[in-house]
């Protein structure tokens, strides 16, 4: 693999694995992340994986930039040993339309489709989580069919409830916490994406695969009750 290194201020270094968003870059980001987490150097503070980069935050009092870069280069020689690990697939149940997805009709109309067709396309793809960012547990998801792409709303909503599934441009996403936003809302999942009480507070991780599954409103409520009971 080819990497380039550059400083992000005086406490972090960025490992760049490619110049374009791709499946390959994503696999490399996952591999580098796993390697750093399974064999953490003594100066490591934390990492932030993104589409084509892994930012490595270090304690500059324990090791200066040159040392960190040299040790990372050495560590990255070992990527082949960990590259075997497979991506997880997480199924996200979604109750589409109605009160949960007020913009489903708009997305359908915009693409000249029936709402049912939008749901069929949304649930038939396999998606990858490129990065968690923007909000706690918020996945940047790649892989949505352009047939259901839709522009953002002209004026953003002030409140989008947590767990809402939406579409913006060629992307689909899920809001883990209540936030303002301009996405077209197509449904809601009963799953909690942000779980601050857990050691791993995010349901999804960079590198995961996801599939969406259509559920009914009563299934949604049953699932959510169970999920909430487990977590509180």
């Amino acid at each position: 693999m080819d990497y380039s290194f550059s400083p992000l201020g005086d406490q972090a270094i960025v490992i760049e694995v490619g110049q374009e968003i791709s499946e390959e870059a994503q696999n490399q980001v996952r591999t580098v992340s796993q390697l750093l987490e399974s064999r953490p150097p003594h100066w490591l503070v934390e990492i932030i994986p993104a589409f084509t980069t892994v930012a490595v935050f270090y304690n500059s009092l324990s090791a200066g930039y040159e040392t960190v870069e040299a040790e990372l280069k050495e560590l990255l020689q070992q990527t082949e040993e960990v590259a075997a690990s497979e991506a997880r697939t997480v199924e996200i149940p979604v109750c589409y339309g109605g009160e949960f997805g007020p913009d489903l009709a708009f997305v359908a109309e915009h693409n000249g489709l029936a709402p049912e067709e939008v749901i069929r396309i949304h649930t038939s793809g396999t998606y990858s989580v490129h990065m968690i960012g923007f909000a706690p547990g918020f996945p940047f998801i790649g892989g949505m069919s352009e047939k259901i792409a839709a522009p953002r709303r002209d004026s953003p909503r002030l409140r989008i409830p947590e767990r809402t599934v939406g579409i913006a441009g060629k992307q689909t996403g899920i809001y883990p916490i209540e936030t303002p936003g301009g996405w077209q809302l197509i449904g809601r999942t009963p799953m909690r994406l942000f779980q601050p009480e857990n050691t791993v507070p995010s349901l999804l991780r960079a590198g995961d695969k996801i599939v969406f599954k259509k559920i009914t409103e009563s299934e949604y409520h049953a699932w959510k009750e169970e999920d909430d009971a487990e977590n509180y």
């Binding site: 992000l8 406490q11 972090a12 374009e20 993104a50 589409f51």
Partner: peptide, 10 residues
Amino acid sequence: LISEAVAFGS
């Protein structure tokens, strides 16, 4: 640009 990590003071 492709989104990437930022830091305190970026």
